[in-house]
Amino acid sequence: MTSNANTDARPTACMFPGCERSVRNRAGEGGGKPPIYCDLVNPATGKLAHTPLTAARERGRQQRQRATGHPAGRNGDAPASAARDRAVGLLDQFRTAVEQMSGTLDAAIEAMSAASDPESVSAELTAARRQVERTRLEADERIQTAETARDQATADTVAAHQAAAEAAAARDEAISELDALDATLAATRAEREQTRAEHTAKRERLRAEHASELDQQRAESERQLTAVRTAAAEQQAVAEAQATEQVRAAQTDAAGRIHAAEAACDQALTEASAARQAATDATRHAEQAREELRQARTEHREELTALRREHRDELTAERQRTDTALDTLRAEHRREIEALQTALTALQGITAKHEQPAPPGQQATQSQGKRGTP
């Protein structure tokens, strides 16, 4: 982040006073402060002409020139003071550069610490585990729902079988009632035959016992017999009609019950088939849910592994970039410190040279020269 900010804030023109050349390119791909001076070379030394030291000297010279109103080279009255002022300015610039480098180093260390923070990594891993657990709970819930549907389908199948058994029992009961009606009709017919046999036996007995009276009473007997026959025929017709009606009604009722029982049985079988199909579908859905759960677990496990690997690679790359940037910063810092120390040593030598007393002959010559000067 610090490197990007420095790159965005990089000037386009040389920062040397009065220079309009473009800044030189960065040396290498490492971090550190971007160059702010051009690549102009001093022909005498073969080194870069525009550096922080030469820029500070030029700015000091221009400031003194603006303050005195004439070129600074003519102010030869106090060269030691001027050198001391330059040394103080260079030391201030050195302190400023050191503070900037310290701030940059602290920001880089803070960025590296944030990138390798175990709490952030733990939070991401915890979120991934929660997502996997949530998916597992949803899959378990779907499996539970499928199992409940399967149990319900099984219960429906049992109920359908019970309904079919009840329908079969109702059909058997109707058939039993029909058999009972047939037995009742047979009993009625047997009773009628028995009554006829009794009348015939009674008539024969009366004829044998009262042969004489038989002729007298023949007409009465025949009339009575005719009446009895008529009554018996009427009773027989009524009984047969009633029996036939009862049989027809029983057959109709039995047929209706049988039809209803068959319809109920068919419906029960249909419901049983539907329940069996629902149970099969529920089992298939449960298998699909289990397969989806296994796939989800596998995918989440792979995603978690990839996330860990990617995060580890990013941490390693960020640590390498940070180390490279720190090494570059240290190298530049060291070079600037050495340059400033060299300049400070040179300034101290110049100051010491100016502070040494001149030889007596040279002092006298300088005094005469001053007196002879108007």
Rank of each mutant, 00 (worst) to 15 (best):
E193D: 13
A78W: 02
R21F: 03
Q277W: 06
Q65P: 02
A250N: 01
A82M: 05
M15K: 12
A169P: 03
G369F: 14
Q216V: 14
A274L: 10
E213G: 00
R95S: 15
G103S: 11
R136D: 05
T184M: 04
A289N: 04
G46C: 05
Q288E: 10
R297L: 11
E20K: 08
T148D: 15
G76H: 10
R257F: 01
Q217C: 09
R294A: 15
P360K: 04
A317W: 00
T298R: 03
R86F: 14
A72K: 00
I109S: 11
R371Q: 13
A55P: 01
A187D: 12
T373S: 14
M1H: 11
Q62T: 02
H210E: 04
R61W: 08
T96C: 08
Q62K: 05
V247L: 13
A167Y: 03
D156E: 08
S122R: 05
E336G: 01
D140I: 02
E204I: 09
P357A: 01
S212Y: 04
R150E: 06
Q368E: 14
N25K: 11
A5G: 15
H70I: 13
L105W: 06
V228R: 06
A325W: 01
E177V: 12
A317K: 10
H70F: 06
R257C: 01
D117R: 01
A286Y: 07
Q366T: 06
S3I: 07
E119N: 13
S367Y: 05
L326D: 01
L225F: 12
E271C: 07
A170W: 03
A201K: 12
R330H: 07
R301G: 07
T54H: 08
R57V: 15
K33Y: 10
A187H: 09
L344V: 10
P374H: 10
E271N: 03
R192N: 08
S113Q: 13
D85G: 07
I143E: 02
A260S: 13
A127Q: 04
A306Y: 02
A159L: 07
A208G: 04
T342L: 08
E245Q: 07
G372Y: 10
Q194C: 03
V132K: 09
T283L: 05
E133T: 12
Q246G: 09
R229G: 11
R309K: 15
R334V: 09
R171D: 06
R57N: 13
Q277I: 09
G18N: 01
Q246P: 03
L90D: 13
R134N: 09
A187T: 13
R312V: 12
E332K: 05
A155C: 00
D106H: 14
P35L: 02
H285T: 15
R26C: 02
N42E: 04
T373F: 10
